[in-house]
Nucleic acid binder design. Structure first.
Length: 848
DNA sequence: GACCTGCTGCGGGATG
């Protein structure tokens, strides 16, 4: 046994650390000099599984480690979350202290005080924990090669969180530089000099995750996968409404099940209630306080628009077991260890298997404990998602994280980062960049375009000094202007966000942030609920909304505009399988049994499609002719497909459509009588032939790309968002990126950033790939067209969805749904007054 | 008169 191993064994023993087989395997693999990916869940001791072998290795190489000083930076540990760097630092420091290793473990993030950052520059710790953004800030420092010259190992923690995002691309680019630092280009030994390890939770594409992390030039024989296979007992239970027929057919808040949820809360020590949106968190918190006032004081809320201070307090209180229930969004998905949590409740569809597993894992969060998670449907059909979730988990189906490719905006930022510090030579950098997974297909022509762009502003911006950032001196691309350098450092990163307004007490102190659109609706004296408190709006001053405490029981609850997550393609597929079972009369899941009356009604009014069938419902009301399609493929695909089909119909027979969709299907509504049979006979109706062209015509692709371009321009450094504390007004930002988009589109059609904007819109907004797969599936299915008299259980939620954002009436949503149900149910067909309500809203888009 | 979708994450200059 080597000295290093002895020391490690001693630590294992002292801590009576439970050794999983994977920890020994990790140690062996690491000490053999490999790189790769460690697949392990949080709370399995994954940090030590990497840190201890690293220590052992170091001690073996430096027997005099106890007296040795100034080793230089040995290990760089990258995490997606600032909070994680601190947690892990503490744990590592404890190991070093225990073993008498005189090391200082440090963190470097945006939280690090300026003095400490300066100290880090002078004397480096042996281990540094940081974020992708801070890594790039370090690369923007002069003499950065000296910082990393002794680096032995690089760990990217929670790699699955970064993979698939531009932050992941940032990590790839950073690594491509660290791999070659201090090594002449002709020397090949660099490929294994630096050990690179990723840590990832289970995702559908682990092998690819390893490839992306290590890049194209890493010797495959040195890439290893270590799997924890930590057996995690997971119990999942759907909360089934007493009477599914009377439970909402549509809706998304789920408060009707509050009593059942609170029964669970009462039985548990500590419960996390996950909701899908921030406003839903606020609504649930409020509802609990109203109906179960005894929870005041032992209940808290946690979401991304609350002040950090508040959130830290909640996390600390959870640790201290001072809270009985926390209502939260995915802000609690990651990171900190919540040992005392024993019950997790998910309200509404989690939309993906992996996300649900992640949340479920928050309960019983220590090795050997059983995780308990409950699923609360917010409308009847969603209950089937509960059955699908269980099935998917049983089969081990997980979503993949698809790596981003050719993100030119991130590359431009990185090129300027290097130009700001040491400068770069074009051919060397091209080779490095090509070694990343993201830019493997980058052509030298494209790279030249980018070089031209940062030095001359490309074809169109040449006469504006603003865009001439980088100069060439002796073949080295460098930034000489201090102003450019400073502004660039200020805008490193790939996360862009909307302008928000800080909510502050009149008496001082801040609660969190709201959106301008919400605040603008308020008049002084109005009350609203935020952060679980009743507040009175006083005034707005310098991007802050000042409030004071209110005693009003009622008030507005804010909503925020955010991403619209569709049902994942994996969960959709299992959902369709479940539906197929239902159509075949298989009733083994409790959810399916509960839903039987609803399915019977669907069958009676229309049809229950099997997996080889595609159901279309057609029905006429005074509103017009409704056509309902059910691909069960997630709302983004449905949005695109609805426009596509509307376009294909209108090409033959001019008609104007309004569109509505949810995760299960979509509706085309038109005044005209459409002979749908005629189109269904046409083989081209669902064809992928000419798909891209038709998408261009049917959707406002320009607008979608323009919106995407706003972020791209920001990341690529084309628009400056202002100095800290004095931000450029959002409107200006919008205008200038929009202007640039127009200029490029007109004068420079091959502009790489504009092209990227279109590609991103296609891939992320339309999920074009998934739509293509869905169309190909539909073409092979038997089309079942049913003429129905009134909305079916499948149709109803889609039609309600289109009313959702109607705000001109004082009726509550519930009233309106009730009215709609009565009218359709009792009178059969048609409602005059709803016609006026069906205005194009956010989801109901005007077609042609 | 008003609750009725839409998550999360980072970072921020320098001198004598």
């Amino acid at each position: 046994m080597t000295p290093g191993q002895q020391v490690i064994r001693q630590w294992y023993k002292q801590k009576s650390w439970q050794q999983f087989p994977f920890q020994k395997e990790m140690e062996r693999t690491y000490l053999a000099g490999n790189s790769g990916l460690l697949n392990a869940p949080t709370g399995s001791g994954k940090t030590f599984a990497l840190f201890l072998p690293f220590l052992a290795d170091f001690i073996n190489k430096h027997p005099d480690y106890k007296t040795r000083q100034n080793n230089g930076l040995q290990m760089l540990w990258i995490t997606p979350l600032r909070a994680l760097t601190n947690d892990i630092r503490k744990a590592m420091q404890e190991v070093c202290d225990d073993l008498g290793i005189p090391w200082k473990i440090a963190t470097r993030t945006g939280d690090t005080p300026a003095a400490e950052k300066a100290a880090l520059k002078k004397k480096l710790p042996e281990v540094l924990l940081t974020t992708p953004e801070s890594l790039h800030l370090m690369l923007a420092q002069k003499d950065y090669p000296a910082i990393f010259k002794s680096l032995q190992v690089l760990v990217v923690d929670e790699w699955h969180e970064l993979l698939g995002t531009k932050r992941g691309v940032q990590v790839e680019l950073g690594l491509s530089k660290l791999k070659v630092l201090g090594i002449p280009p002709e020397d090949q030994s660099h490929k294994t000099r630096l050990k690179i390890w990723g840590i990832s939770a289970t995702i559908g594409n682990l092998e690819q995750a390893a490839d992306v992390l290590l890049g194209n030039d890493f010797p495959p024989e040195n890439i290893k996968m270590v799997r924890a296979n930590v057996e995690k007992k997971l119990v999942i239970k759907s909360i089934i409404p007493e009477n599914v027929e009377n439970y909402s057919w549509a809706g998304h808040i789920g408060l009707k099940l509050l009593p059942q949820v609170m029964e669970l809360v009462a039985k548990s020590k500590t419960t996390l209630i996950f909701t899908n949106t921030r406003s839903q968190s606020e609504i649930w918190y409020h509802a609990i306080l109203d109906n179960y006032p005894e929870y005041a004081g032992v209940m808290a809320m946690h979401h991304g628009s609350l002040d950090n201070e508040l959130r830290n307090w909640v996390e600390a209180a959870l640790h201290a077991e001072a809270l009985k229930v926390v209502v939260c969004t995915s802000s609690l998905d990651l990171g900190v260890d919540f040992r005392p949590v024993d019950t997790v409740i998910q309200v509404g569809s989690p939309k993906g298997v992996a996300r649900f597993m992640q949340r479920a894992g928050r309960s019983g969060h220590h090795p050997g404990a059983i995780s308990k998670a409950y699923f609360v449907p917010t409308h009847s059909m969603e209950l089937l998602e509960g059955a699908a979730l269980k099935q998917a988990i049983k089969q081990g189906i997980f979503e993949s994280r698809d790596p981003m490719l050719l993100a030119m905006d991130v590359l431009i930022q990185y090129m300027v980062t290097l130009a700001v510090s040491e400068g770069f030579k074009a051919d060397e950098l091209f080779k490095e960049v090509k070694s990343t997974y993201a830019f493997a297909d980058l052509t030298s022509k494209e790279f030249s375009q980018l070089l031209d762009f940062i030095t001359n502003g490309g074809k169109t911006l040449a006469q504006y000094d603003e865009f001439l950032k980088v100069e060439i001196e002796n073949g080295v691309y460098k930034v000489f202007s201090r102003r450019v350098a400073m502004r660039h450092r200020l805008s490193i990163g790939t996360i862009t966000s909307e302008m928000s307004i800080r909510v502050k007490w009149l008496s001082g102190g801040s609660l969190g942030t709201l959106e301008e659109s919400f605040i603008s609706k308020l008049k002084p004296g109005n009350t609203f609920w935020f952060a679980g408190r009743s507040l009175e709006f006083v005034r707005i001053k310098e991007m802050s909304a000042y409030v004071k405490k209110s005693t009003a029981k009622k008030g507005l609850i804010p909503s925020w505009a955010g991403g619209r997550m569709p049902l994942s393609s994996q969960l959709s597929a299992v959902f369709r399988d479940k539906l197929d079972e239902v159509a075949h009369g298989i009733e083994k899941d409790e959810e399916v049994i509960a839903l039987k009356p609803l399915f019977d009604l669907q069958k009676q009014l229309s049809h229950l499609p099997q997996s080889h069938e595609f159901l279309i419902e057609s029905f006429k009301s005074r509103e017009g002719h409704h056509l309902l399609f059910y691909p069960f493929e997630g709302r983004l695909v449905h949005e695109g497909m609805a426009s596509l089909l509307a376009y294909r119909i209108s090409r033959v027979k001019p008609a104007s459509f309004s569109l509505a969709m949810n995760d299960y299907g979509f509706e085309l509504l038109t005044d005209e009588d459409v002979d749908i049979e005629q189109f269904l006979e046409d083989a081209d109706f669902f064809s992928i032939e000419g798909l891209l062209d038709d998408i261009q015509h049917s959707l406002n692709a320009n607008e979608m790309a323009r919106r995407r371009f706003r972020d791209i321009a920001h990341i690529g450094g084309l628009v400056f968002t202002g100095y800290p504390g004095q931000q450029v007004k959002n409107k200006h930002l919008q205008a200038s990126s929009s202007l640039l988009f127009d200029v490029f589109s007109e004068y420079e059609p091959d502009n790489l950033l504009v092209r990227q904007a279109y590609n991103e819109a296609l891939a992320f907004q339309l999920e074009e790939f998934r739509m293509r797969m869905a169309l190909q599936r539909i073409v092979k299915q038997n089309i079942i067209l049913k003429h129905i008299d009134r909305p079916t259980p499948f149709a109803f939620p889609i039609m309600v969805d289109s009313l959702g954002r109607e705000k001109l009436t004082t009726e509550t949503m519930e009233d309106r749904i009730g009215k709609m149900a009565r009218q359709y149910g009792a009178e059969g067909v048609g409602i005059e007054q709803n016609k006026k309500q069906r205005k194009p809203g956010v989801t109901r888009k005007k077609g042609f």
